[in-house]
Computed example of a mutant assay.
Amino acid sequence: MSMISYRQALHDALRSELLRDDQVFLIGEEIGHFEGSYKITAGLLSEFGPKRVRDTPIAEEGFTGAAIGAAMLGLRPVVEIMTINFSLLALDQIVNHAAKIYGMFGGQARVPLVIRTPGGGGQQLGATHSQNIELYYAFVPGMKVVAPSTPADAKALLLAAVRDDDPVLFLENLALYNTKGEVPDEDVPAEIGRAAVTRPGTDITVIGYSRMAAVALQVAEQLAETDGIDAEVIDLRSLRPLDRETIINSVRRTNCAVVVEDDWLSYGIGAEIAATVAEGAFDWLDAPVRRVAMSEVPLPYAKPLETAALPSAADVITAIRQTLAARGR
């Protein structure tokens, strides 16, 4: 095991897959000579050359479409879109082509494509550069969407995504890049579609993904120490496919749930989780499912307003205490 950053874990996974499989190549804006806006691809151009680390023009629809074609012909492209906000320019290619080709061609062609892209607020990048719009892709059959919260999962899920024969949107939250954790030195891919119980507990289930899964775990440890609350934490890791079984089984044990997410409350991932709990564990619930999410506004640039709009650890603590109070604790 090595203690490395989330950023380094992604870099190591990409390098490992480039070494393992000659059909893997990277493509995106400024990933070569500039080494990526967030330096995930640092050093890879000099090691593997421009054929396998390909800089592109500022044309998301174009280079995403080129990657889809390459994938259909047997290559395994890893696209880096500088921010998930820019993926909107390639929405037609992703939703109407990458996600649908296997089904529309009756299985005659596959699209083993990975789209890596960071998202999330808190960096004062303004409303059009700080969104969490993974729901757009998790909504679409034919896509897989993963959102790791730890360096270990970042490496393991990226290995799995590159080796998968379906298109995978790989979500990275900007706030996680410098976080550190223990990562296995060997290359062991994770199972896409399997949530992780990062902290077992008996009093309440807290469900999150990406940055908010990390916040949920911190809150659970804090409440265990200060309030004696034994919270179980589920890190979804995968948004499509969604591990509904782990969610339902946990809530059936704890009898209440709080869902935390970085995106907007209405129509979001949290709403889907709440519906999953209602359908699979309603008779076990002792209190309504509560949701913690971002304020429903375009994210402000001013730091105090941005901080106020984003969900915080304090918001999660409040929701947990309210839920437990509603069940009489």
Rank of each mutant, 00 (worst) to 15 (best):
E272C: 11
M143Y: 00
I68C: 15
P57V: 11
A196F: 06
L88A: 13
F25G: 01
R163H: 00
I192V: 07
Q123L: 14
T179I: 03
K51M: 02
R252N: 12
I31R: 06
R211A: 04
D230M: 04
I115D: 05
A274G: 10
R327E: 03
F48H: 00
I4W: 01
R20P: 14
R321Q: 08
G36E: 03
A98Y: 11
R327N: 10
A67P: 12
M212L: 15
Q124Y: 12
I27D: 00
T205E: 05
T307N: 10
I273K: 10
V114E: 00
M3K: 07
N249K: 09
Q8L: 13
A319F: 06
A71K: 04
E47G: 03
V259W: 11
V53L: 01
I320T: 03
L26C: 06
I247V: 15
L217A: 01
G120S: 08
P304V: 02
Q23I: 12
L88M: 10
H129N: 09
T150N: 00
V53C: 00
V206A: 02
V219P: 10
D166R: 15
G120K: 08
E279D: 10
M143L: 15
R52S: 00
D166F: 10
E182V: 11
A196S: 13
I273N: 04
L239Y: 08
R252E: 13
D153M: 05
D262A: 14
A281Y: 05
P151I: 00
D164E: 07
V277I: 15
R20M: 02
A293G: 11
V140W: 00
Q218S: 07
T318P: 04
S238Q: 08
Y38L: 12
E172D: 00
W264D: 07
I81R: 02
P241V: 06
G268H: 14
N132C: 11
T150F: 13
L18N: 00
N173T: 12
L18Y: 00
V168A: 00
F170W: 13
K51P: 12
P141C: 03
G106R: 04
A70T: 10
S210A: 13
N178Y: 06
D22M: 09
A59P: 14
T117G: 05
P184K: 11
V233L: 09
S295H: 15
D12V: 11
M212A: 05
E47Q: 02
P151C: 01
Q23S: 14
M143H: 06
A214L: 07
D283H: 13
E296H: 04
P148L: 01
T323Y: 03
A319L: 14
K100S: 02
R327K: 15
